[in-house]
Amino acid sequence: MTDQGEADLSVIGAALSDRGRCRMLMALDDGRALPASMLAAEAGVSAATASAHLKHLRAAGLLEVVASGRYRYYRLAGDEVGRLLEQLARLSPAQPIRSLREGTRAHAMRLARCCYDHVAGRLGVALTDALRDRGHLVEEPGLDVPRPRGRFPDDATYLLTPGGREALTAIGVAVPEAVGVRCCTDWTEQRHHVAGPLGRALLDTLVDRGWVRRTPRSRALRPTDDGRAALREHFGVPWPPPVGVRRLPA
């Protein structure tokens, strides 16, 4: 056995240094597996360039291949890659909007989107606020997370109360056995949304019950008419979700 040195961040940095590769990664940040042709279109590059990009991303450990017959699909190599992308998105400047189409897409993404395997955007934080306000989620006792002024801590753990478990189970959410709930900071809203196993179960329920629909070529989520009624009935969340920064206790 040989000793290993410090982590080589340059491998990940080099993989993320190309805008086309970054676009491919962000297109996969809803947990889907997509073919190379769709990722090439997302990145705006040729098939040959896309193949080189995908090889680079796989070598860096950011992507994995899923085979289905003679077809090959690509997806993120685990939820840690999704979390990395969200953290980097929070630190990165926004790209300029140059067309009505880009503006429409950006607005839809901010309203509601998939963040790897859970709900993000204004809808994600509104659902999390509703669970907190109703006492279904409470901060874990003894949790000591620094709170920068005016912002939530980056990642934090909450506890799901018995009442919260009962309420979510009643609407069909397959609530995990663990009472700890991970919340991460939404990169567009700078506020918490529920992540982890409970976030995954909540998204699955919204999709399975037909309350939200995935969009074919975007991570955006769109509520159905039944979904808008259900969001208001079960969570008190209107559509579009409210805008505003939650005030933290002093």
Score class of each variant (00 low, 15 high):
Met1Tyr: 08
Thr2Gln: 10
Val11Ser: 11
Gly13Trp: 06
Gly20Asp: 02
Arg21Thr: 04
Cys22Tyr: 07
Met26Asn: 07
Gly31Val: 07
Arg32His: 12
Arg32Gly: 09
Ala33Asp: 13
Leu34Ile: 12
Val45Asn: 01
Thr49Asp: 06
Ser51Thr: 15
Ala52Pro: 00
Ala60Gly: 08
Ala60Tyr: 04
Leu62Phe: 10
Leu62Ala: 08
Leu63Met: 07
Glu64His: 10
Ala67Phe: 01
Gly69His: 13
Tyr71Ala: 14
Arg72Val: 03
Ala77Gln: 11
Glu80Met: 07
Val81Glu: 05
Leu85Gly: 00
Leu85Glu: 00
Gln87Ser: 12
Leu88Asp: 01
Leu91Glu: 15
Gly103Met: 09
Thr104Asp: 14
Ala106Tyr: 02
Met109Cys: 11
Arg110Tyr: 10
Arg110Gly: 12
Arg110Pro: 05
Ala112Met: 13
Cys115Arg: 00
Asp117Thr: 15
Asp117Asn: 14
Val119Glu: 04
Leu127Phe: 07
Ala130Leu: 06
Asp133Phe: 03
Asp133Leu: 11
Glu139Thr: 06
Pro141Glu: 06
Leu143His: 03
Asp144Met: 09
Pro148Phe: 09
Pro148Lys: 12
Pro153Leu: 11
Asp154His: 10
Thr161Val: 13
Gly163Lys: 06
Arg165His: 06
Glu166Cys: 10
Ala167Asn: 07
Thr169Cys: 08
Ile171Pro: 02
Val173Asn: 00
Val175Glu: 01
Glu177Arg: 13
Val179Ala: 07
Arg182Pro: 05
Cys184Arg: 11
Thr185Lys: 11
Asp186Ala: 11
Glu189Val: 11
Glu189Ala: 09
Glu189Gly: 01
Gln190Thr: 02
Ala195Thr: 12
Gly196Asp: 13
Gly196Asn: 09
Leu198Ser: 02
Leu198Ile: 07
Ala201Glu: 11
Leu202Val: 15
Leu203Asp: 03
Thr205Gly: 09
Val207Lys: 03
Pro216Trp: 12
Arg217Thr: 13
Arg217Phe: 12
Ser218Arg: 02
Ala220Asp: 04
Arg222Ala: 14
Arg222Thr: 15
Arg228Ala: 02
Ala230Arg: 01
Trp239Val: 06
Pro240Val: 10
Gly244Arg: 08
Leu248Ile: 10
Leu248His: 12
Pro249Gln: 10
Ala250Lys: 08
